[in-house]
Design a protein around this nucleic acid. Structure first.
Lengths: 123, 123
DNA sequence: CTGTTTCTCAACCATGTGGTTGAGTATAAG
DNA sequence: CTTATACTCAACCACATGGTTGAGAAACAG
């Protein structure tokens, strides 16, 4: 069944279930960041943020590159893709509403290219 | 910001972070099911399954229609769409790999046997 | 060398989680 | 009526979670 990747999906969805971690991923989408740079926007101890990073790393959403004393993190989106693929499996139930949400989200990020891909996926 | 729906996304992703609940959603994609019908595939007490249904319902992923003593559940995919929209926001990081996964997932619904290929996807 | 920065680790805490059992409420069937 | 079905609720359990603090370890700056 599809549930072969079940354990991996557990981790990914759990990692995503926390707004702090989603915000971290968002920050990471701008580029590589150190752990303390990731922690800065949140009123939280560095150790706390470090634990969040570890969750993201364990889920395979983030990769770490240690350079001296600094740990640089970067988005590793393959696992995000697995989650999105799982969700897409149910697309037929919401196709109509997706366009609206998509428009809202992309409008905020001034991106313009992906909408055609959304519509043309279901001919 | 994107974090307007943050609380809702917390609930949705948390609901999805459990394989049992994902399997329930999958079952629900075939059509409406009673709580006990949803519970049947799992070696779990009815009360346990009922709690899972409640989590799905709280996340807005499932709607309940009570008819006599039977509670019929059905997929309410709008919230799933929000989650997918969030994920799609990061699509530019994995666009190439997404098509492969999509093909694999949809293929598994009719055919069976490619799960090894999925597992092998890690480069 | 002495500090300072960056980060992890361990211990702890309060709360939440997935699961159970046992009881209780309706509803349906005999 | 009695009994069985479908389900929820409350209490409980072991364990994970999100967070803290207080040590450190390791790399850099002086």
């Amino acid at each position: 069944m599809v549930e072969k990747q079940s354990a991996a999906l557990d981790g990914v969805f759990h990692a995503l279930s926390c707004g702090t971690r989603r915000a971290m991923l968002h920050a990471l989408s701008e580029g590589e960041l150190s752990v303390s740079a990731l922690a800065k926007p949140f009123s939280m101890s560095l150790a706390g943020a470090s634990k969040h990073v570890k969750v993201l790393e364990a889920a395979g959403l983030v990769r770490r590159r240690v350079e001296g004393r600094t740990h640089y993190c970067r988005l590793e989106a393959a696992r995000l893709a697995e989650a999105e693929a799982w969700l897409r499996h149910y697309e037929r139930f919401w196709t109509k509403r997706l366009d609206t949400l998509e428009a809202l989200l992309t409008a905020e990020d001034e991106v313009a290219g992906q909408k055609e891909a959304v519509r043309e996926r279901k001919p």
